[in-house]
Amino acid sequence: MNSIISVKDMCLWYGDHQALKNLNVEIPEKSITALIGPSGCGKSTFLKTLNRMNDLIPGVRITGDIRYKGADIFDKEVDVSNLRKEIGMVFQNPNPFPMSIYNNVAYGPRTHGITNKVQLDEIVERALRDAAIWDEVKDRLKKNALGISGGQQQRLCIARALAVQPTVLLMDEPTSALDPISTSRIEELILELKEKYTIVIVTHNMQQAVRVSDYTAFFLLGELVEFGRTEDIFSQPMDKRTEDYITGRFG
């Protein structure tokens, strides 16, 4: 298994507060990596660092090295726009734009310069199919995206992210705002997406980590405590703190 993102000695500060401490990790390609840990442990912050979404937050300072396919993502020459096209993101709460379903999915491709109608139609359909929502919305592509259910909205957001043809998909607790049925649909979807994409998913839900992920990283108080195959982490954790957490002793 090759690694697609490698993180070396990464630290992150919000002002004076150090939120991430000396992280070292290799994210494996075409597999699902789950980031787990109690709230406030820095897992979401870490996720958002991978496609530089933290740039949007004032007062964030990052040291260390993150390489995507061997290239430094913090290089001055890097265009974050292109980086985020490669490394897409799905957010905790479904956040479709207040526009039609079609325009939501077409937003990304249009951003990156695709204006041809035929081509756009094709991309939109493929993305919606890949996100397993095509059948539900194909008759109302022109309807406002805020009119569909929360679970559908989240799959639409996944479709929106897929439409720019990313290589990596970051998911920040994508099911935490959804009901169990929608959650299991999204989990199935994530497992299907593994074929084509590298997925990094933050989750609060340990069953979910077990169900979907190949690798798991356990975060605690801004540190990466343990990283390994999910089955190993959950069956024979190396670190006492990991064991305590997965057996429900805290968090």
Binding site: M1, S6, N24, V25, A71
Partner: peptide
């Protein structure tokens, strides 16, 4: 401190064409 579980499953990235 990071403890990587058992043996390393993941090869370090070097083989991508940076250019």
């Amino acid at each position: 401190m990071v403890i990587t579980n058992k043996k390393s499953y993941i090869k370090q990235t070097t083989d991508y064409n940076t250019k």
